[in-house]
Design a binder for these strands. Structure first.
Lengths: 234, 234
DNA sequence: CGCTCTATTGACTTCGTTCAACAAGCGTGG
DNA sequence: CCACGCTTGTTGAACGAAGTCAATAGAGCG
């Protein structure tokens, strides 16, 4: 399959382009370049000029912010067919407000922001998809901000597990398996805590039979109980 | 001045409509109703159907989320000429993800979301203003999420003071005065902590001559020092 | 003056981080 | 295959930050 045809079929699965016509998809695909990034590499860094927006084709990546002292915070994880890095299409001369780092070898469609901006002017209905993405993202960030402000670490860790299970959990006989390139450090960044606390908490849950853990792997043997912790009921 | 003319002059000062033409402004003003809310009242509650979007005319309000246990988190404070509650214009049948509560008696232009949506379809260039607002807001929330995750309470309180000083500080001879209807409780909600910790911290700063405080009033006598705390340099 | 709302302060507790030591999984090259 | 080193994960002890609770003090208002 040619790159162009590959792009089109991927773009059709992007939520932002749900309502896009065939002609729209083709026009967008025409702007696309393919970029691959090895594990640990960056699609872009915080502060870089936002020259491209991306649609993840394969692999996994995370959006994260890095504080001046080097501490990282995980904002969201990116799965295939998700659009990211779109600031530049809205605002000229914008810079990325976060880094996009590949968790495993990944590839993406890269689209020049300025060209995509022109496309939005020519095909304004596409803006609605983008705005929906943004409002959804705003709501998610507001939620998580509230969680960070009001909830205890245990609860936040449980939420992270539930979120991961929802995104990429596999049903196995023992429960729901989360097998991803996430170390304790990664989980800690997602929950806004330290790897020590994550390790301790998971150990405690394992003792109580809620989960089974291993190197970069977690199985929720009692997803319901985890859900209760996440909702603050336990 | 008629309500209509009042609306037009206010709308021209709204950042989102910076690039709007006279005809755009007039069309928007035509959709507007005026709503007034007394101190403590709500423009809307979290979970309400998002039937209107608002432009604050006078007074001050806050956007906040309320957790199941009643704890509040302050997402942002709203000043005149700011647009808020716009989810409904983007997504049909959306609900507000937060409450908008008046900090003092306030008035706003209320615009029906569905009508504004139609207007966006007819005048698509208006979408860009809205998208800029959204990207800006996303960036702010990401910043604050990171701050909440990585910074100590003291630092966050300092940031709140700097933000308030920037928004509505008045230069007086002793320094920068923030005179707003913000109790310690409000400051705590903004910083994501408790009123006790805020009280203690402000007292400590007052002892060290960084600020002078009073009932619902703070004067930054040494703004530079507060800035240093906010940036994590002290 | 007394009521209410707001703010202060101290004592105590809890939660989470820090640091250090150690264990286990995994790949690599001899 | 094994030994080695690297990365990832575990655990304990000690510390510190911030939350909780309760008692008290002011400030403003009718």
């Amino acid at each position: 399959m040619s790159a162009h045809a590959l792009f089109e079929s991927a773009l059709r699965h992007v939520a932002v382009f749900r309502k896009a016509s065939e002609a729209d998809i083709e026009a967008i695909a025409n702007l696309g370049l393919q970029r691959t990034v090895e594990e640990g590499g960056f699609f872009f860094m915080q502060g870089d000029p936002a020259e491209y927006l991306y649609v993840l084709l394969s692999g996994r990546a995370k959006l994260c912010q890095i504080a001046v002292d080097g501490q990282q915070v995980n904002l969201r994880t990116l799965n295939p067919n998700q659009l990211f890095g779109a600031v530049g299409a809205v605002e000229v001369n914008a810079t990325y407000p976060a880094c996009a780092q590949a968790l495993e070898a990944s590839s993406a469609i890269a689209i020049r922001s300025d060209k995509f901006h022109l496309l939005l002017e020519q095909r304004p209905h596409l803006s609605f998809g983008l705005m929906k993405l943004m409002t959804g993202y705003i709501q998610e960030m507001q939620e998580r901000y509230r969680e960070m402000a009001t909830e205890k670490v245990e609860q936040r860790i449980a939420r992270v597990l539930m979120r991961l299970a929802g995104q990429s959990g596999k049903r196995v006989e023992q429960g729901v398996l989360i097998e991803l390139p996430f170390s304790r450090q990664d989980l800690a960044e997602m929950a806004g805590t330290t790897l020590f606390t994550v390790s301790r908490t998971l150990s405690a849950w394992e003792r109580n039979g809620l989960i089974a853990t291993g190197r970069e792997r977690v199985t929720l043997t009692n997803p319901h109980a985890i859900m209760c912790v996440a909702e603050g009921l336990g």
